[in-house]
Design a protein around this nucleic acid. Sequence first.
DNA 1: CTAATTAAGACTATTTTACTCTAATTTATA
DNA 2: TATAAATTAGAGTAAAATAGTCTTAATTAG
Lengths: 133, 133
Amino acid sequence: MLLTRASEYALLALDIIRNSEKPKGAEQLSNELSIPKSFLAKILQGLAKEGILESKKGAHGGFVLVKKSSEISIASIVIAAEGKTPAVFDCSQYSATCPNGIIGSCTISPFLVTFQSKVDTFLQKLTLEDIFN
Amino acid sequence: MLLTRASEYALLALDIIRNSEKPKGAEQLSNELSIPKSFLAKILQGLAKEGILESKKGAHGGFVLVKKSSEISIASIVIAAEGKTPAVFDCSQYSATCPNGIIGSCTISPFLVTFQSKVDTFLQKLTLEDIFN
DNA sequence: CTAATTAAGACTATTTTACTCTAATTTATA
DNA sequence: TATAAATTAGAGTAAAATAGTCTTAATTAG
Ligand code: SF4
Ligand code: SF4
């Protein structure tokens, strides 16, 4: 699985948030989507940290979009939700996790790197607006 | 992670096997690649079942390629190694695992399906020969 | 016959994912 | 200014997937 629940929940929540005038609270979103509140809250906090959402504390608080849908890439959302960019494989980003220490001379490494870059590009080019239209 | 160790080991092993005249045993491969023998054996058995490798039992046995490298898609290897096609997400193949039962009306499902199909196509078009050249 | 090898399947260990819980902080508004 | 409604932070837990192990059986070249 390239994506986890975190990305799913982030995208589902963002679709609701972008269609709302007022800030949407974590509890309200979790009800509408039938997903665990604490978990969703965590994810939304992550999106806020990355500057995708603005969070308003206190009564009548909640989350609102800061940018236009067309200015938010799916890549940025997924990275914020997962805490890292989704990897095709351990070493597909040269993250130095080769158990054999053979990165560089590995026969399949070039394939993995190309594959990863295809995925990266796909996600970077797509925006929130794209996927909901 | 879209791919697991099983795919990595399968590909690394296949590169050695295709460059060998004689059948390659699981033990020999596991030594050359420094990967656990039992685990590799399991994976090779899977490749044999899918008709990617031929296995020869008994003394001087081992594994050989049955088709030409250019006739073996990476997709078929990965499917054999993983036991299933690598999924972008739970529901990206309409495998009916939607916890909300909203497949069909889900706002992000179209995106997931397109993403999955991009990945599928990429892996289907690539052959063993391609990635080692 | 026998040593070398694959086959099959149950089992275990490790890691990652998917949460949960509690306490602290902020803020609109009554 | 008190209060209730929210986010924030971080530790902790449960479940699932990954990555392996082990043992026994079946083949087969020599
Ligand atoms: S051996 Fe190759 S594929 Fe495996 S981790 Fe190292 S670089 Fe990556
Ligand atoms: S809600 Fe949408 S994304 Fe989530 S599992 Fe169901 S169909 Fe897939």
